[in-house]
Design a protein around this nucleic acid. Sequence first.
DNA 1: GTTAATTCCTAGTAATTCAATAGGATTAAT
DNA 2: ATTAATCCTATTGAATTACTAGGAATTAAC
Lengths: 138, 138
Amino acid sequence: MKLSTRGRYGLRAMLDLALHYDDGYISLRHIAERQEISEGYLEQVFAMLKKDGLVKSVRGAQGGYKLSYPPEDITVGMILRTLEGSLAPVECVDGENPSKCSRYDECVTKFIWEKMRDSLYEVVDSISLEDLALKYKK
Amino acid sequence: MKLSTRGRYGLRAMLDLALHYDDGYISLRHIAERQEISEGYLEQVFAMLKKDGLVKSVRGAQGGYKLSYPPEDITVGMILRTLEGSLAPVECVDGENPSKCSRYDECVTKFIWEKMRDSLYEVVDSISLEDLALKYKK
DNA sequence: GTTAATTCCTAGTAATTCAATAGGATTAAT
DNA sequence: ATTAATCCTATTGAATTACTAGGAATTAAC
């Protein structure tokens, strides 16, 4: 039940972009240095973020990445869903990728998984990058 | 962020024991058949549950396992913590196994992980095996 | 006291995922 | 032209997962 580094690194990198939202495009090199994350690995993380439309990019010298939306419009939930997939603790209650087992109908534990999923989403969808940025500046 | 089958199987097996709480010791063979779980694998799961004191056992013919406490005194949280370890989404907020990273003090994302952890615990610690058993009988 | 049923214990294993690294192709500013 | 960047694909070592295999120890029933 642990998050992978993809989600953790990705969130930190997105917070970094939020803190520099007014500074144009930011290169992975800078983010990697500030956040002490392997640059090559960050590339793969940002490929996912870009594919899902959370960031946009410019290639070439002086290029980099930028949030697609202002920090207040991007939630932690959006980022974690992109990088970790659904936060549902088991697949049968995973809306995006539903794979119901043969005991789906009689299953009682299912209700637990739904509650876990919903309470997690409530947390992560209620926190935006701006919330984090404000907290950081203090 | 998915639970492993250890947690899922284990919970179902514990629910099975709860439903047969008044029937003495139940063999893994029966649980495995009813729950359609590999018996050999269940052995390993029950080794963990026993080590943590959630079940007790009797060896030999007619032996088996039994809940150490009545179903209302065993929560889903107790079972999942035994089988999955802490439900903290990252190690730095894992009370049992704390491993703080070098950025612990300045870290803003930490607060998210704490909220996720707390909301998960609120869910799983509020549901007992008896709750599940009652739900099942309906 | 033998047999059958059961827990207990250790080791191995195929498949998957993770967290990178490596090497290059493409693009754009200077 | 050079440099700085994104983009793309492949590989890899380590760890974890979900088992299976094989047996030792224990107990009830006959």
